[in-house]
Write a protein that binds this DNA or RNA. Sequence first.
RNA 1: GGAGAGGUGGCCGAGUGGUUGAAGGCGCGGCACUGGAAAUGCCGUGUAGGGUAACUUAUCGAGGGUUCGAAUCCCUCCCUCUCCGCCA
Length: 421
Amino acid sequence: MIDPKLVRDDPEAVRASQRARREDPDLVDAVLAADDLRRSTIAGFDRLRAEQKGLGREVAQAAGDEKAALLARTKHLSGEVKAADVAQNEAATAYDGLLRRLSNIAEPGVPEGGEEDYVVLEHVGEPPQLDFEPRDHLELGQRLGAIDTERGAKVSGARFYFLTGVGAQLQLAMLNLAMAQAIEAGFVMVVPPVLVRPEAMEGTGFLAQAAADVYHLAEEDLYLVGTSEVPLAAFHMDEVIDADRLPLRYAGWSTCFRKEAGSYGKDTRGILRVHQFDKVEMFSYCLPEDAAAEHQRLLAWEKEMLAKVEVPYRVIDVAAGDLGSSAARKYDCEAWVPTQGRYRELSSTSNCTTFQSRRLRIRVRDAEGTRPLATLNGTLATTRWIVAILENHQQADGSVRVPAALRPFLGGREVLEPVPT
RNA sequence: GGAGAGGUGGCCGAGUGGUUGAAGGCGCGGCACUGGAAAUGCCGUGUAGGGUAACUUAUCGAGGGUUCGAAUCCCUCCCUCUCCGCCA
């Protein structure tokens, strides 16, 4: 939720942000109209309620005939107060509903446009020069006895997989490497619940545009999280945090679940796009004025991790139209995938400014009082990284070189060798 | 799953139908005292809405209800604790 004052004080800025995102600018005017109605119903209710309370005080002190007369007078007021209360609540609900539909204000400098309008900020590393026909990650994974998608489909359906042997070990090694880095950087490691209440899902903004991608358990009314960003953001829901405790940095380790609705036929091979994967996610709470700098720090930590797995990648500044509703700015790191001849997203870091904290009622308290704080998130490693690691470090014989930083987490192994099937 | 006890301000904790936004304590801020500090004393201190302002409204887990009036009574739900049952 954006700052309601901004809509009132500078509606054109909000309209401009909506246009940049290719969302509806007229929503701003609907919010303004709902706000007018809301305020007038509040005035009506307040007046009646004040009168009722005043009479109530007199009733409390009166007795006998005087009391009876007062009661007669106030009896009809009761109904009016109730009606005004209903009107007030309806107007407030309508206003809130519209306000929540407004996406976060894109940060100045965000590229305009849609998915294809990102700006490449930099390239790091060179695609490997392979003097043989590269195998894709699935073929490599099968030869290594690392990835089994056929049995994944048998047991659970399409887009499910088993990580076996060195595949499972590689994932654990990578996530451990990521977590070790995060802890070294001062993050608090968190293993969060992956089933959350509607409030947590709603508060982080995932029930808006990403709703179709979210698994829901109807019987319990719980949602499976698509990222530990959700429980990490909701961790401090309804809390007031002293300014001197900020920034708070958490590194979540969790399994993530995504329906991948609308991606039928896309990336169906291997483990590039799956319903369930594991991830180490960084999450920061900081002062709003520090958010942009914190965003750069998260990006730097992502790059540090990418350097450790030695894959070539580029950093893109995601265009406004391709931002999630919560994000004011988003940088993606995309790794080179040799068999696809293109870059694929490995990590993503978003500055959600005060959008999530306002929805989740998380505030910071300093000398001036309390106010919403900023939340940011960024990926440190996911199952998908295995794709880039296998393909970029493959050798002619189908073996895969292990990046040096991962070796300590793999019992010192330098090469993953094919196994007999 | 069953039975019972609870959910009150940043925190702890009184309060069972009427000037209670809510005693008291802690914390925090200011002042006094001090060479400075601690201790002590005094004063102040929730949040969110509406209003140019004076001021006003809401808020005692959430949502309904009873009543002229609800933190307080009733219903539903959520959560916590204790005991029993069940259990990968």
